[in-house]
Nucleic acid binder design. Structure first.
Lengths: 152, 152
DNA sequence: TTTACTTAGTGGCATATGCCACTGTTTGCG
DNA sequence: CGCAAACAGTGGCATATGCCACTAAGTAAA
């Protein structure tokens, strides 16, 4: 017998997505917590790490995140000395981001924990199921809802 | 040919989920915006509406959301007169929530817009695909990662 | 009943995200 | 060259969420 799972809004794609995000976020956060980072921060450090001193705009684009939101999220990481920024010498509008040595160490530490969370999650839902889910979510993140503003 | 979609972190279930949430959230927000509500608020009003003057804890449970977070999220809605709370006469610890008349009107208005967003989204990803996705996300929200604390 | 435990919310603090208005920079043109 | 349009970020303000410490209210055990 399957215990009646969750009540309510199981109809709105957005609401269901948010709810799952809260749940999974708490789990990853819990597991990664010993590093002192939130799962979001670990992910951000990773994103910076795999980039070549990426510009803020590039990071925001990759994460489908508002540029100013990225700026805010970056602050605690800069304050704690894990990340530093510098102006691109070729285009002074651009500010690039990179990990500090401590940031790299911290990322290593967090990644070890992340692997545990990732593994535990995939053990529960199945590796393939997880991969399919990620693919579906990637598609959503890449969707192109038309342009709201007016055309010239 | 499939244009290389999104770079980076396409490995972390949590990060991918968050990214999709940001994207979809922006879309639903945009569409629902004319009502003056965020998609999250519309969803919350709806959740309250379908409940029978639900207790805060019940709402938080259904949304897999922290109780205090719910309290915070509720504040703007109370301030704007869409929602009101009252103490349960049988158990004065419990605070129940209900829509005000204006809240009901506003919800109606927002739901009309929501349907547009929902429809547009499902036209893009496919009705069945969307249903499968919701089911998968529901499963995640219902997952039971073991209990972190120690046992007696 | 008196005490100990459990339950339901609140308030404070911190991060996560967005939008908008505004400030520098670059670039494109006339 | 000089100015308008396009870009990249910043800061302020508001919502979304969480955790923790604390208070008020039931409940159960002594």
């Amino acid at each position: 017998m399957s215990k009646d799972p969750l009540p309510g809004l199981t109809l709105c794609n957005n609401a269901v997505l948010r709810r799952a995000t809260r749940k999974l976020g708490q789990f990853y956060d819990d597991v990664v917590a010993p590093s002192g980072l939130k799962a979001t921060q670990q992910g951000l450090l990773y994103q910076i790490h795999i980039g070549d001193e990426p510009a803020m705009g590039a990071i925001a684009g990759a994460l489908v995140m508002d540029l100013s939101a990225l700026g805010h999220t970056l602050k605690p990481l800069i304050r704690d000395g894990y990340v530093e920024t510098f102006t691109d010498p070729n285009d002074r509008r651009i500010k690039r981001v990179r990990l500090t040595p401590q940031g790299l160490i911290k990322l290593d530490e967090a990644m070890k924990l992340w692997r545990v969370a990732q593994q535990r999650f995939e053990d529960m839902v199945g590796k393939e199921q997880a991969a399919m889910l990620r693919a579906a979510l990637d598609d959503i993140a890449a969707l192109d809802f038309g342009i709201p503003p007016a055309a010239p």
